[in-house]
């Protein structure tokens, strides 16, 4: 399995480059991955989304749809796209240490 080095630690990643193990993730790693992905500063709204996605994933085994994400995280669609430009669901999942979302919505 491929690995990436984040903050001096070698971490296993899947074919999409997302972390392979949920437990490898922590907030510092999230900040570093976000910075590498062009998001230099994670705001409280970013965290609201990341934490909500992790919560749903831990409970249900898959990331929530964008519709559910915006309804339940308290961050609306417009803001979501501003926070994670160029593909919010995919990028937020990556920074949250989750696999790429599989849903269509």
């Amino acid at each position: 399995m491929a690995t990436v080095t984040i903050l001096g630690k070698e971490l296993a990643v899947d074919a999409d480059g997302n972390l392979a193990n949920l437990s490898d993730w922590n907030e510092d790693i999230a900040r570093e991955m976000a910075a590498q992905d062009g998001i230099p500063n994670l705001t409280s709204q970013h965290w609201a989304i990341l934490n909500y996605m992790r919560k749903v994933f831990e409970k249900e085994g898959s990331a929530p749809s964008i519709r559910r994400l915006t309804k339940e995280s308290g961050v609306d669609t417009k803001t979501l796209y501003q926070l994670f430009p160029k593909g919010p669901a995919k990028r937020a999942a990556k920074i949250a240490g989750l696999p790429k979302p599989v849903g269509c919505i």
């Binding site: 749809s65 964008i66 519709r67 559910r68 915006t70 609306d76 669609t77 417009k78 796209y81 849903g103 919505i105």
Partner: peptide, 18 residues
């Protein structure tokens, strides 16, 4: 059931996405 919104809500969502 598969979390696809009604047409009106879907259009708002699509428009808000840019």
């Amino acid at each position: 059931k598969i979390d696809i919104p009604p047409v009106g809500e879907f259009l708002t969502m699509i428009h808000d996405s840019g």
